[in-house]
Amino acid sequence: MRVAGPRRDWGRRLVVGLPFLWLALFFLVPLLMVGKISLSESRSAIPPYEPLFEFADGALVTVRASLANFILLFEDDLYVGAYFQSLTIAGLSTVICLLIGYPMALGIARARADRRGPLLLLVILPFWTSFLIRVYAWMGILKDEGLLNGLLLALGLIQEPLIILNTDWAVYIGIVYSYLPFMVLPLYASLEKLDPSLLEAAADLGAPPWRAFLAVTLPLSLPGIVAGSMLVFVPAVGEYVIPDLLGGGDTMMMGKALWDVFAQTRDWPAASALAVAMLAALALPMALFHHLQGRLEGDGRS
């Protein structure tokens, strides 16, 4: 059956257009503003950058744009280093989240139907407390005279308190803890859909459980793995609060680098240039991820 006519067409355009309008308004426009500032020069006034366009009598008189801010970024390896450290920390955290989250998701998916709800609730429960408060709680747990060291000392497992807080270890603990639910939920969604009869068939054909897992469960949950990994990786790359509170300052992630230029040098154009460059540099791994996800979904359909 075909419903032709312009009315339906308009309805469809509206439905498709709304998200685009949203993106244009809240993503594209701010991005263009940042892009504009990145091409100008800093000055001592409000706002603290030179105008890009100068108007006189309603007509455009001069356009002053410069790429100097972008060239300055590559003066040394500071920002390139921050970029790679961000990728490393986010990547490793994603892998750890996957290793912890997968068994959790599988466990919940295989639990009795009436227990799944409460188990999922437990995964989401931490969100009911402010993120900041949870990070502060980790400071209390991890510090030299904190709960963890107190417990380990009391048990006699260690003689000297472990120094965890203000090191990269604490940053990893914080990120993995904070983002684990984002890994578990998509994984659960894809594992829960998995038809148990496929596993029975594998067992009937003589596959031991580990073989059935590798040949059936794992490939079929790949879309969940990719979705979960993206949900962890993307916000972790830009993470600012966790390295600041739990790290020792030597964790130079991109958010921190940006804050330095923006606030310490008070150079908005240079900070904007850094933000634009980082966005461009991040688009690369994201595109790769996206491509992978698209291919997996394509496989799923065929």
Binding site: E75, D76, L78, G81, A82, Q85, G249, M252, A257
Partner: peptide
């Protein structure tokens, strides 16, 4: 920049 390098 020098300070960021020192800190990190």
């Amino acid at each position: 920049r020098a300070w960021a390098k020192f800190r990190s």
